[in-house]
């Protein structure tokens, strides 16, 4: 895919920290995610996150594939991780 992001249009994956902290007990922005489309593994914090939308859309910084989507209504969160093949989440031992 010819992914040509405009840096004015998106933020980095740290924009996901607050919304995801409502759902997960760990900080997912430090997790390593493998893109289901191109297979590249990167920290979630490196995703290109489009926030000026009805939800948050996190795209692979390499191929632009949608890796993660979050929608928050007043009483529900929807999370789509179809575009993330695997997440490696650091945990304290």
């Amino acid at each position: 895919m010819d992914y040509q992001p405009d840096s004015d249009e998106h933020q980095d994956g740290n924009a996901l920290a607050g919304p995801l902290s409502e759902i997960f007990a760990v900080d997912l922005t430090s997790a390593l995610g493998r893109c289901a489309s191109c297979g590249v593994t990167e920290p979630v914090a490196r995703l290109h996150v489009y926030t000026r939308a009805p939800g948050l859309v996190g795209r692979c910084p390499h191929c632009g594939h949608v890796a993660l989507r979050v929608v928050r209504s007043p009483d529900t969160a929807w999370l789509d991780l179809c575009g993330t093949a695997a997440l490696r989440i650091p945990l304290t031992s």
């Binding site: 992914y3 040509q4 405009d6 998106h10 489009y50 939308a53 009805p54 859309v57 795209r59 632009g64």
Partner: peptide
């Protein structure tokens, strides 16, 4: 006229 987009702007 707010600009909303779920991804980069295709040209």
């Amino acid at each position: 006229f707010p600009v909303l987009s779920a991804g980069p702007t295709p040209r």
